[in-house]
């Protein structure tokens, strides 16, 4: 492997369940056989990369967001707070102000515009960040608490933590949440390259094309990995050719892979074809992706 600028790579998909975590964990472990790699699980609503990696926990910290807390003794019930809240996180029922912290986007408008300081911002725990270490592999994940609705601030914080701690790692892989909404955009917006994992089915193709549109809006280069290759049809391949999107690798549909995955094992260690696919992906990234994006 040639040495170059650090590469930040997101592993995303439109459709859920296509194999983002399978690819993220296997690629990270494979790279770690030779050099340092950081894997960050940003699917903070249901992080599961950690199930496949046995590391020693070296750090944990709570994640917080700032939300207003009503001080009844100061409040004049003028109602400005609820009028300026775009998220309906504050309502006014007669002489009472009700704050819904889960709906709050921490914009501070209510708190700043309150003329009597009756809504000071206070930290609210939203989840937990953990860092694990296993040889060359550094693994970081964040997990939202049950009932928390907003993934984006946690994703932003977790990325910042990872990049701040390992600014020079040759590879930082971000395991993205599925879909193409704000959480996914928060993951891809400042990476060097996006690997899109899809399956060769009409549903897979539909969501792949949505993901490609999203990535193009951010002007990020991307490549496709076709997982469960052999099912469905050839439309994904055709689509990639028409859109000039490189197909980095294909991973065959196989019961053995599913069984290994289900028992929490890394598949490339048992299945040589997967190791070949990982090598192809890595080669492509090293030779075609320009690093150092901010």
């Amino acid at each position: 492997m040639t040495s170059q600028k650090p590469l930040k790579i997101a592993i995303a998909s439109g459709k859920g369940g296509t194999g983002k975590t399978t690819l993220s964990t296997n690629l990270a472990a494979f790279i770690a056989e030779q050099q340092e790699v950081v894997l960050v699980d940003l699917d903070v609503e249901e992080p599961n990369s950690g199930l496949f990696l046995n590391g020693e926990m070296i750090h944990e910290e709570f994640n917080y967001k700032m939300t207003p807390q009503w001080d009844e003794s100061k409040c004049t019930v003028c109602g400005i707070c609820r009028k300026v809240c775009n998220f309906h996180a504050i309502i006014q029922l007669g002489p009472s102000i009700l704050v819904f912290p889960e709906l709050c986007h921490s914009c501070y408008a209510c708190s700043e515009l309150c003329t009597v300081d009756a809504l000071p911002m206070v930290p609210k725990k939203t989840g937990i960040l953990k860092e694990f270490s296993s040889g060359n592999l550094h693994f970081i994940e964040s997990r939202l608490d049950i009932g928390e609705e907003q993934a984006v601030p946690t994703i932003a914080k977790t990325k910042k933590y990872a990049i701040g701690k390992f600014p020079d790692a040759q590879f930082t892989l971000f395991d993205s949440p599925p879909g193409t909404s704000c959480p996914m955009m928060e993951v891809i917006k400042d990476v060097d390259f996006v690997i899109l994992v899809t399956e060769p089915t009409p549903f897979g193709l539909h969501d792949l094309s949505l993901a490609v549109e999203t990535i193009r809006a951010y002007k990020k280069p991307c490549g496709v990995v076709i997982n469960r290759y052999g099912i469905g049809n050839n439309d994904v391949i055709e689509y990639c050719q028409n859109e000039n999107i490189p197909i980095l690798a294909k991973i065959a549909n196989s019961r053995e892979i599913a069984e290994l995955y289900s028992s929490g094992k890394l598949i490339y260690r048992t299945i040589p074809e997967v190791k070949v696919a990982l090598n192809e992906i890595l080669d492509y990234c090293l030779n075609n992706v320009e690093g150092g994006n901010k």
Binding site: F87, H88, I91, Q92, L93, G94, L98, F100, L103, E149
Partner: peptide
């Protein structure tokens, strides 16, 4: 037009 907070917004109205 609200992605979130429809329940609290309508509650305010009902109140």
């Amino acid at each position: 037009n609200e992605a979130h907070g429809a329940g609290t917004a309508t509650s305010q109205r009902v109140f």
